[in-house]
Amino acid sequence: MEKKCVNEKKCGSCKYLHMTYKEQLKKKEEFVKHELEKCPELKGHFKPIIGMENPWNYRNKVTAVFDRDRKGNPISGVYQEGTHRVIPVEKCLIEDELADKIIGTIRGMLRSFKIKVYDEDTGYGLLRYVLVRRGFATGEVMVVLVTASPIFPSKRNFTNALLKAHPEITTVVQNVNNRTDSLILGDKQQILYGKGYIEDILCGCRFRISPASFYQINPVQTEKLYSKAVELAGLSGKETVIDAYCGIGTIGLIASKHAKNVISVELNPDAVRDAIVNAKVNGIKNVRFYKADAGRFLTQMAEEGAKADVLLMDPPRNGSSEEFLRSAALLGPGKIVYISCNPVSLGRDLGVLKKLGYRAEECWMVDMFPWTAHVETAVLLVRKP
């Protein structure tokens, strides 16, 4: 089914809207295979890409930047590709529809509450961004109002008016960001309504999600990806598993049902706090969480002579570091399951792991981001005898 977006050529996100869904899946498969040519042993072991039945409105996290048009009216949307010019967006084909409606409601409330949107050039104004996160399984909705100042006039009345318009909202948080960089969330926040977080269910586990916590934006495809990753690990219940870059603990907690114990490492303190709570909520006692840089943590483990059976790794878009990969190899895991959102950095890291004695044996692709050029990949590597 063909759909049109008025901002397609300006936004820069959905680069494949001109294709059929079948065509873009094929293009993503070809892209991954090209970037992983460094591992010729994978030839013949690329599995068909896993697509979506309904590839629309899948994003459970929506961020809108606020600005003014030439007439001074508040607008909200996204930055035009490569600029800081805001493109007004009322509906997006890949964003959660309820999130877009909530953002529209907030935009319409600003004038009556005399709230000025933030001006990047002058530094004047209050509202910078609105972030909406929704638990697709639980229906819980979080709204984060990112302001330039902690002083938010009539915030109680504003919150009540928002809740009256959208009773689906389960929590509202004010986040204060007075920095001049491109980061959306600041370090300080105040709960205006509810518990300050939402929960969602993934692969049978319940997860707590705070405003700054990393959580995959497409829950339908995430279940497929993580289930496949755990399957590739081939756990029997006797293994020590390391979950590097663990975020709020998702894949490690899911894998813990099939392992002896799991060691999970994450640098973001908010994510670690959520991960610890998530383990308790799910009654999981065989996972330990550590707030640390994954590379340094594995280096320390290797220096102490520790060993692991399986390494699950899901690094940021720029991939892992050579220090991390060397330390990982010293721990001697028989299997590594490498999850990546960037085939370019994945190909580079697979080349390093090959030199360290690992053979890539199987590659699965999951279309986590339909209509965009991005694709998620899971590769199984096995230690050579």
Results as ranks from 00 to 15, higher is better:
129 Y>W: 08
58 Y>K: 00
231 E>Q: 06
27 K>H: 11
187 D>C: 11
381 L>P: 04
232 L>M: 07
158 F>S: 08
83 T>Y: 14
205 C>H: 11
269 P>F: 15
284 I>S: 12
314 D>Q: 04
248 I>K: 15
329 A>E: 02
200 D>N: 04
207 F>G: 07
329 A>V: 00
314 D>C: 07
268 N>G: 13
33 K>Q: 07
5 C>F: 05
157 N>M: 12
209 I>L: 10
341 C>W: 01
75 I>H: 13
199 E>S: 10
98 L>Q: 04
245 Y>R: 00
44 G>M: 02
234 G>E: 05
288 R>G: 12
120 E>L: 13
372 T>W: 07
35 E>A: 14
290 Y>N: 09
254 I>M: 11
234 G>I: 02
252 G>P: 00
83 T>Q: 13
260 K>F: 09
135 G>P: 01
43 K>A: 14
313 M>F: 10
140 E>L: 07
302 A>I: 00
319 G>V: 03
92 C>P: 02
121 D>F: 15
103 I>S: 14
236 S>R: 03
351 G>S: 09
34 H>L: 08
21 Y>P: 00
76 S>P: 01
19 M>Q: 08
48 P>D: 06
49 I>K: 15
366 V>N: 05
193 Y>V: 03
363 C>R: 05
284 I>M: 09
50 I>E: 15
179 R>D: 14
286 N>F: 09
330 L>P: 06
21 Y>T: 00
20 T>V: 09
143 V>A: 15
128 R>K: 06
300 Q>E: 15
192 L>S: 14
51 G>C: 10
33 K>M: 14
328 A>S: 08
308 A>Q: 00
285 K>F: 13
341 C>M: 05
97 E>H: 08
11 C>I: 00
43 K>F: 14
324 F>P: 02
372 T>A: 11
353 L>G: 07
102 I>K: 06
195 K>Y: 02
138 T>V: 07
151 I>E: 15
11 C>T: 01
121 D>K: 07
206 R>F: 08
69 D>V: 01
94 I>R: 09
8 E>P: 06
270 D>G: 10
70 R>Q: 14
209 I>G: 12
80 Q>L: 12
185 L>Y: 05
312 L>N: 03
168 E>R: 05
214 F>Y: 06
298 L>N: 05
279 A>E: 02
80 Q>I: 02
381 L>V: 04
356 L>M: 08
212 A>L: 05
280 K>F: 12
378 A>S: 07
90 E>K: 05
105 T>F: 08
318 N>E: 10
370 P>M: 15
96 D>E: 04
101 K>H: 06
218 N>P: 06
13 S>N: 03
107 R>T: 00
316 P>V: 05
15 K>E: 09
369 F>S: 05
359 R>E: 07
70 R>S: 13
319 G>L: 06
148 A>D: 02
361 E>W: 12
93 L>A: 13
179 R>S: 15
170 T>C: 11
306 A>L: 13
153 P>Q: 08
180 T>V: 08
204 G>W: 01
333 P>D: 08
142 M>L: 14
349 D>R: 03
